[in-house]
Every structure is written in structure tokens, then in C-alpha cells.
């Protein structure tokens, strides 16, 4: 594993503030979604990103606005990390007209093309070839953009994982394959469906680098992703980065996740990525308690505003269901 503290000192303070802010923003956002869900204000289902914030933020902190990402059913965190507007994400989750997709996508299908967020697919593994296509487009257009493709360890058993990564490898496409290994595909523990411990080992099958990283350490993720971005921008091809992490909640809305041993959950809660990052920042005296409280207050206000905006926004007119089928 790449477990690195040295890069902490090398990063400018604004970067650290921004990373902490984004992680805290994702957590606060997801807590609000959960609250609204409990109040029956969220139609359908939700898949919360709480606990995995270090992955999205560690990766996206290396990206430019015109770089791309693809996302999954557990995608709110990716959107926020890439710079999407929490107001419009929240409105979409509530099915409102002011949401990113005008209420047509919901929690599992948020996209913001204006910040390079190419959308979340709810078919496990389906985003992999699409990310590869964005990588091919970059290569054919001759820009130095990159694509970060997020998926879970469950997706690595799909055929699209094999087909997509192989294609990106042979064509040396600028794609980061970011596997968020949270140990469970719904209720299925990784050890029940594969004999290997590290998904990153699968990279060897495609002749590309495979890296295992502590997915609850935002700086470790940042550094690993940074190397992969550099390699991609230089035209040297894709990297598979496996981030070991854990979701704090169940798979979806009411799943109490009884299939997870209590000790395991407790152990991972102790490794909470936000708590760890905060402790590190304080210990290294890079941010003070007061500064951190300031960030947290700002973010809390912002999320409150997002909720207010979403709740007060109108629903789409029913007949708008007929629009946007064709361009």
C-alpha cells in the first residue's frame, strides 16, 4: 500500500482546505439525504457515499475542470468532488424540475457535463467502457485531458471490466480505473465471489500498473491518483487503483447491513476518513481547530441552502416526461 504522510507537507494550504471542505461537504450532504429520506421526502432509493469520501476527493483533487469522470449508483460523492452544485444534486434527488436532470434521473443518474461529470450509470460496471470511450475521444482530439472511472469491487466481476480495461490498455488511453473496494457488493462479501484479495492484481492481466491504496486516507489516494494522472497525461496509458474503503451505511435506503460483523463495522468507523484527515491536519498544525470549525460551519450552511432550494423547487410538469427522448 501507498500510505503517505510526506505529501501533506508538500501541499499548499488552500489545497488541504479544499480537500477537507469537499470531504466534509459530501458527508454533510449524505447525512441530509438520509434525514430527508427518513422524512419521506426522497422518492425511490438512495445509496450513500458516507465513509468513502477520501476516494472521490483524493482522486478529483488531481483533476482539472475539463477532465472527465464517470460514476455509479453510489455517486453523490463523485459529483460533489468534481465540482457539481449541491443544490442541483439535492433537487434531482428529490425529483424536482431544478435538478441536474430535470427530475428524469434521480439519485442514481446524476450528471453535470459542465464540470466533466459524464453521469452515473446504475448498471454495475457499465460506466467502464463509457469512460474508455471518453479516453479514446481525448486521444483522437489530441488534448491532454484524463478520465477517472469510479466503480466498486463488485463491478470487477463484470465482463465490461475486462473488455473495457483491456481496450484502454492496448490503446494507451488516459483513463484512471478507480475501484472503490468497500468489501461488499450489496450483501455479498468479496471473499465469497473471488479468490484474490486485491482487485489491483487484475491489472497484471492487462499489462498495466495496479495499485492498492488505503482508501480512507485522502492523501494516499491523492498521491496514487496523482501519479496515474501524470502517466495518463503523458500518453503512457491507464492505471488501476484499488482503494480499500467501507460504506458507513447499508447498501441502499433501509438495508441495516446485518451481514457485516459488528467488530468489522466498528473497526472501519474508527478509520473514518474525515476524522483521520482532521487529526492529521491538527497534528501537523496545518489547520487550527478554529479554521476547521469555520470550514464546517460554511459547509453546513451551504448544505442547508441546498436542502431549502430542493425542497422549495417545483416538480416537473407531468407531460415533461415526453421530452428529451431524442435530440
Amino acid at each position: 500500500m501507498i500510505g503517505v504522510v510526506r505529501s501533506l507537507m508538500e501541499l499548499p494550504k488552500e489545497k488541504l482546505v479544499e480537500m477537507y471542505r469537499k470531504m466534509f461537504e459530501i458527508r454533510s450532504f449524505e447525512e441530509k439525504v438520509f434525514e430527508l429520506y427518513a422524512q419521506n421526502m426522497v422518492p425511490g432509493t438512495i445509496h450513500l457515499y458516507a465513509g468513502e469520501e477520501a476516494v472521490a476527493v483524493g482522486v478529483c483533487s488531481n483533476l482539472r475542470k475539463n477532465d472527465y469522470i464517470t460514476s455509479t449508483h453510489r455517486g453523490h460523492g463523485h459529483c460533489i468532488a468534481k465540482g457539481a452544485d449541491p443544490k442541483k444534486i439535492m433537487a434531482e434527488i428529490l425529483g424536482k424540475k431544478t435538478g441536474y436532470c430535470k427530475g428524469k434521473g434521480g439519485s442514481m443518474h446524476i450528471a453535470d457535463f459542465s464540470v466533466g461529470m459524464l453521469g452515473a450509470t446504475a448498471v454495475v460496471g457499465a460506466g467502464i467502457p463509457i469512460a474508455v470511450g471518453a479516453g479514446l475521444s481525448i486521444k483522437l482530439r489530441g488534448t491532454d485531458q484524463v478520465v477517472a472511472c469510479f466503480f466498486g469491487e463488485g463491478a470487477s466481476n463484470q465482463g465490461t471490466f475486462h473488455e473495457g480495461i483491456n481496450l484502454a490498455a492496448i490503446w494507451k488511453l488516459p483513463v484512471l480505473f478507480i475501484c472503490e473496494n468497500n468489501l461488499y457488493a450489496m450483501g455479498t462479501r468479496q471473499s465469497r465471489v473471488m479468490l484474490i484479495k486485491n482487485i489491483a492484481d487484475r491489472a497484471a492481466a492487462y499489462g498495466i500498473p495496479g495499485v492498492v491504496v488505503d482508501g480512507n486516507d485522502v492523501l494516499a489516494v491523492y498521491e496514487a491518483a496523482g501519479k496515474a494522472v501524470e502517466r495518463a497525461r503523458k500518453g503512457e496509458g491507464p492505471t488501476l487503483i484499488e482503494c480499500k474503503t467501507y460504506r458507513h451505511k447499508g447498501h441502499s435506503r433501509i438495508d441495516p447491513a446485518k451481514y457485516r460483523p459488528r467488530e468489522e463495522v466498528e473497526e472501519w468507523l474508527r478509520k473514518d476518513p474525515i476524522k483521520r484527515f482532521k487529526e492529521k491536519l491538527l497534528k501537523e498544525k496545518l489547520l487550527s481547530e478554529v479554521e476547521i470549525q469555520g470550514i464546517e460551519m460554511e459547509v453546513t450552511n451551504e448544505i442547508e441552502k441546498a436542502v431549502k432550494f430542493a425542497v422549495e423547487s417545483p416538480y416537473p410538469k407531468p407531460e415533461e416526461a415526453l421530452e428529451d427522448v431524442y435530440a
Binding site: 472527465y68 457535463f113 463509457i130 469512460a131 470511450g133 471518453a134 479514446l136 475521444s137 473495457g164 483491456n166
Partner: peptide, 19 residues
């Protein structure tokens, strides 16, 4: 390669990014 899903998926990704 013989990867129909990736052929079409790659085409989708390229199509939504300007190709």
C-alpha cells in the same frame, strides 16, 4: 478486440465527448 460490449460502450463514451 472481440469485445462487442466495449465496442459500443466506447462509442457511447466518445459520442458524449464530442466525437
Amino acid at each position: 478486440p472481440i469485445s462487442e460490449s466495449a465496442i459500443v460502450g466506447t462509442a457511447v463514451g466518445a459520442a458524449i465527448t464530442g466525437m
